[in-house]
């Protein structure tokens, strides 16, 4: 008799649970929390994610999709506390937008089996460690880098091209190597000079690096991470072409920014959200590529036209008929 009662209770409870889950998925909005290492307006890595969040919200509507964020979480221990806190507050998806957060995520995710987590940039979902609720995402930034490299080689008159990066790791390393490969594939005798600033925030040093690149003859520059805003200014001032990455940097120097590789994280996030809604909490990795539209090359024709006209006026281009 007692056993029977217990069973009934369990059945009732389970049905309530299933009911509420099934019902809840439709009734309540999908809630996302994002933790980002720099500020949402850095014109680089963090902004690319913030823009994706805004885009998804616009598409799905505020009723259906809500998000909160913690920006400038460069202190990893604080980010870990934020990740844990968001998870315990029942967000459907917690995104740790920085590769430095991975080791914290591995510790936290198993404690919240009903929450989905995502992190990048990497393809490691930790499924080899038996964790099933982590997604991973990355951008093949070398692809856009290669495209920009090809264009840069074509546009360069001096055959010298300057590159400015933060530290030689992760996303920045991939972009720079892709760019270099693109240049050399197009113009094997071109010279690609690379300088690393040693930080993501030293705007002044990045700008002096740009000056030095131009001084040794570079007429096309590129750079990655948020400290390059100073270098873009130098490129503009000295009339040297610029290729951007991570976010559209045209607004900083419309005269010289030729093209930007832009990350569209919605390509990774939309299927992720779909999976979470269907009940899969993690395990897959998403890669932004040119093929799946996650990487876009935003070309600013104005700069190209201007440059070509200028070159013809200055006699740098000889039109052979």
């Amino acid at each position: 008799m007692m056993k029977c009662k217990k069973n009934i209770i369990i059945i009732v409870m389970i049905s309530i649970l299933v009911f509420s889950l099934g019902f809840g998925a439709n009734a309540k909005a999908f809630r996302v929390a994002v933790i980002m290492p720099s500020s949402i307006n850095d014109l680089a890595f963090s902004q690319s994610m913030y823009d994706a969040m805004v885009a998804i919200q616009e598409e799905m509507g505020k009723e259906e999709f809500q998000f909160v964020y913690s920006e400038s979480m460069f202190v990893v221990a604080d980010a870990a506390a934020a990740i844990r806190d968001y998870a315990s507050e029942g967000y459907d998806l917690v995104i740790a937008h920085g590769s430095q957060y991975g080791s914290s995520l591995v510790e936290i995710a198993p404690d919240f089996p009903n929450t989905s987590f995502a992190w990048g940039t990497t393809v490691n979902t930790f499924s080899d460690q038996g964790i099933t609720n982590i997604f991973a995402y990355e951008a093949r930034s070398e692809e856009g880098g290669y495209v920009s490299g090809v264009l840069a080689a074509k546009l360069s008159q001096t055959g010298i091209i300057g590159v400015i990066g933060p530290i030689e790791t992760g996303d920045a390393k991939l972009y720079v190597e892709g760019f270099k490969a693109g240049v050399l594939a197009t113009k094997p005798d071109a010279q690609v000079n690379i300088s690393w600033i040693g930080s993501f925030s030293d705007v002044a040093l990045a700008s002096e690096a740009a000056q030095t690149h131009i001084n040794v003859g570079a007429d096309v520059l590129t750079g990655t991470a948020q400290m390059v805003v100073g270098a873009i200014g130098v490129a503009r001032q000295r009339g040297v072409l610029w290729f951007g990455t991570q976010a559209d940097q045209t607004s900083l120097a419309p005269e010289v920014v030729v093209a930007n590789q832009v990350y569209d994280w919605t390509v990774a996030l939309k299927p992720m959200i779909q999976l979470v809604r269907e009940g899969t909490r993690g395990g897959s990795a998403y890669v932004l590529t040119l093929a799946n539209g996650g990487l876009k090359i935003v070309v600013n024709q104005e700069a190209l036209v201007r440059k070509t006209i200028q070159d013809i006026i200055e006699g740098k281009i000889d039109i052979e008929l």
């Binding site: 290492p37 460069f74 202190v75 990893v76 221990a77 604080d78 920085g98 430095q100 080791s103 914290s104 933060p166 530290i167 040693g198 930080s199 993501f200 925030s201």
Partner: peptide
């Protein structure tokens, strides 16, 4: 806490100032 060492290019990421 971390069980590994990492960097974000500055000291702060690890030390939290």
């Amino acid at each position: 806490v971390h069980h590994r060492m990492f960097t974000d290019g500055s000291a702060t990421g690890f030390t939290g100032s």
